[in-house]
Design a binder for these strands. Structure first.
Lengths: 147, 147
DNA sequence: AGTAAAAAAGACCTTAAAATCTTTTATAAT
DNA sequence: ATTATAAAAGATTTTAAGGTCTTTTTTACT
C-alpha cells in the first residue's frame, strides 16, 4: 500500500509533534529512535519533508526539526502521501490495468473506486496533530514512541 | 497496493480463461502478449500458479495452460493474492506500525480496518471467471486484451 | 577566533522485485 | 527414432527502494 519511506515520514512527523508538545526540538537521531527506523535514512526523509516545507529545520547547536506557525496548521496525511508517493497514487488502477478510469473501467474499477476513495478521504481527514493527540490520549500506540 | 507480479498473475489467469472460452489453450507467449507483460516473466509466474494448482499445464506440442474441472471451480482473486503476496497481506498495518491490531491499535487502525476489510471482501467475491465475463460482456476493458 | 553540534549534501552500498538468458525435460507429430 | 514445440528449471542481470558512510555547511556557545 504505502511505501516504507512514506510510513517513516508519517511517523517521523508525529514524533516531531509529540516532542514539540513536550517543548523539545528533536534531531533526526531522536526521531529515528522514536519511530524505530535507521538514523541516516530518517535524515534523508527529513530533508525531503523540509524541502517541501512541511516543517522547518535549523542546523548547528540546539538545532533540529520543528513546525512554524504556518506549518502548525494541520498537515494532512494526504499531503505527506502526495509528496512521498506522487499524485498518481490516488488515481492509478489498483490492479495494474492501463487506462483505467470511470470512462474506461477495468473489470474491478466500479467496486474498487469507492474503497480507494474511502482511503483517500481518511488521508484527507486525519492530520499529524490528530494522530499525535490520539497517542497522547492513550487511545492508540505508536510502537516504541508509546513505550 | 498489489505488487506488479500479483497484477500480472491476475491478468494472466483472466487471459487463460478468455482464451479457453474461445477453445484455445494459450502458452506463456500468448498470455504475455494479451496482458502486455514480459514473456519470460510471465512464464515464471505461470510456473508459480501451476505449482499452487490454480491451473494446469502441459508441455510439448499443443501444450499450454488451462483449467481442469477442479480449477474450473471459481478461482477467487483472494486466492491469487494470498499465493502471490502471502497471508500477512490481509492483516499487516497499513501504516507500518508494529503490533497493530484491534487490541493494540495504531492511531489509524479503527478507521483503516473497515477499508481493508472492504477490499478483502472484494477479493473474496470476485473471481477470474467473473472478471472474464465482464470483459466479454463489454462492461470492462482489459488493456490490450480487449483491443 | 575557535570549537562543538547539528542538518545538508553527495557518494556509495545492499536488498528485493522485476526481468532476461540458457539449458533441460516433456509431449506430439512425422 | 527424429524433430519440432512448449513448459520447467536454473542462473544471471537490471532496476528501484531502502539504507549507509563521508564531507560540507550552518549555528551557537565559549
Amino acid at each position: 500500500m504505502l511505501s516504507k519511506t512514506t510510513e517513516y515520514a508519517i511517523r517521523a512527523l508525529v514524533s516531531v509533534e509529540l516532542n514539540s508538545r513536550k517543548g523539545q526540538r528533536p534531531g533526526f537521531k531522536t526521531i529515528a529512535r522514536d519511530i524505530d527506523a535507521p538514523e541516516q535514512y530518517v535524515a534523508k526523509i527529513m530533508q525531503t519533508l523540509t524541502r517541501f516545507k512541511l516543517l522547518k529545520s535549523v542546523r548547528g547547536r540546539g538545532g533540529g526539526f520543528f513546525f512554524t506557525e504556518d506549518n502548525q496548521q494541520d498537515i494532512f496525511l494526504y499531503d505527506v502521501v502526495w509528496i512521498m508517493e506522487g499524485k498518481t497514487f490516488f488515481t492509478r488502477c489498483g490492479f495494474g490495468f492501463k487506462h483505467c478510469d470511470a470512462n474506461n473501467p477495468c473489470p474491478l474499477h466500479n467496486e474498487y473506486e469507492p474503497i480507494r476513495e474511502a482511503f483517500t478521504q481518511l488521508l484527507k481527514k486525519e492530520t499529524i496533530r490528530s494522530l499525535a493527540t490520539k497517542i497522547e490520549k492513550g487511545e492508540a500506540v505508536l510502537s516504541r514512541l508509546s513505550v
